[in-house]
Amino acid sequence: MTSTQPDTFTLADRQPAASVIAECLRTQAIATPRSPIARLFGRTPLSTDAEPWYVGALGELEVARRLDSLGSAWRVFHSVPVGRGSSDIDHVVIGPPGVFTINTKHHEGQEIWLGAKRLLVSGQPTDHLRNASYEAKRASRLLSAAAHGLIDVTPVIVIVGARRLTVRERPATVVVLRERGFIKWLESLPAVVPTEAVEQIADAAAKPATWHEMPVLEDADVAAFGRLRREVDAARTRRRGWAIAGLLAIFAALPLGAMAAWTSVMAVLVP
């Protein structure tokens, strides 16, 4: 669902993950409903097409939750539409240390390897560094034009949910951090922007027209996404329940000797 916002609307009112939530729900709306049997056995309600949007939304919501802890000296904008099409910037953060574009990447349980010019996810190359750099340069150009002065923007990639982040070498221009460390990093930076300048930049950033040629913003149905999230969580819980029940059934069917051996192994593995 899309709606043209009134002139009084600013991006300070924009919901976190608004764009990806809207796309997730739109894609999910045309998915084939689960059968009763599929529900019984805990098959996920997410369609294959909706799942990447759902995972992306969870990542942006987690980063937004952590950004809420920043003090009153900071200004944060979420899901900022940019350009001519449907692209957006996950988060724009403005504070005493400067201006930052934050690109959220939700890689649950994945192994991340970081080099000076490459970021690999479970061994596979990505365009994360290039895209984050481009995003920050674009934001710098648009904000500089709106604020009538040069505004440097630092690109940041926040990795959510990764099993491990191995750093071989830090990139020269893009900051890559895990979700649990990036707020502390932001707050540790020296203050270089006066309060008045922070407010001036934030005023420019709050205007949809600063970023997009025809700013028509989507209203994300947060309540509907919450219901979908509860369904996904319930399905996961049900699958785990069936898995545990299956293991218990196998265990109960073992001969006494095998059962004793299995118990000994489990005692070692799970002290």
Rank of each mutant, 00 (worst) to 15 (best):
V93E: 01
S122N: 09
A146T: 06
H106E: 08
R141W: 14
Y54C: 03
T237L: 13
G115Q: 05
V232A: 06
V192Y: 12
R43C: 14
L129M: 05
V193F: 04
V158L: 03
S122E: 10
G71I: 00
E231G: 11
V20H: 04
Y54K: 02
L11D: 01
E169W: 06
A235R: 02
I94R: 00
G71V: 04
A145V: 09
V55Y: 07
V222W: 05
E187R: 01
T10V: 07
V121F: 08
I21K: 02
A172W: 08
T101Y: 01
L247K: 06
V232L: 09
R170C: 12
A191Y: 07
A162Y: 00
A57G: 07
R34C: 11
V216Y: 12
T210L: 10
T8I: 12
L143C: 04
A205E: 02
V175I: 09
A57M: 00
P45Q: 03
A249S: 14
L129H: 02
T101L: 01
A234C: 12
T263P: 11
V156A: 02
R239W: 08
W262H: 15
W242H: 11
I94L: 00
V92W: 01
A38F: 08
D49W: 04
E111N: 13
V265A: 12
A235D: 05
I89F: 04
P52E: 00
D68L: 14
Y54W: 06
S133T: 15
T263L: 10
M1L: 09
S133A: 14
L165H: 02
V99N: 02
A29S: 10
M214W: 15
A243K: 15
V192A: 11
H128R: 15
S35P: 06
G56K: 03
D88R: 03
V156K: 03
A12D: 09
R239I: 03
W53D: 10
V76C: 07
F100N: 03
A64N: 06
H212W: 00
V158W: 00
S19K: 05
E111I: 12
T2M: 13
F41N: 08
Q110L: 11
R239M: 09
P45R: 03
T32C: 13
P36C: 07
E213F: 13
V232R: 01
I250Y: 14
A139S: 09
P81Q: 03
W74I: 03
F225K: 00
A235T: 01
G161Y: 02
V175M: 10
P125V: 11
T166K: 11
I102F: 03
R65V: 06
H148D: 13
V156S: 03
L70I: 05
G161E: 05
R141G: 15
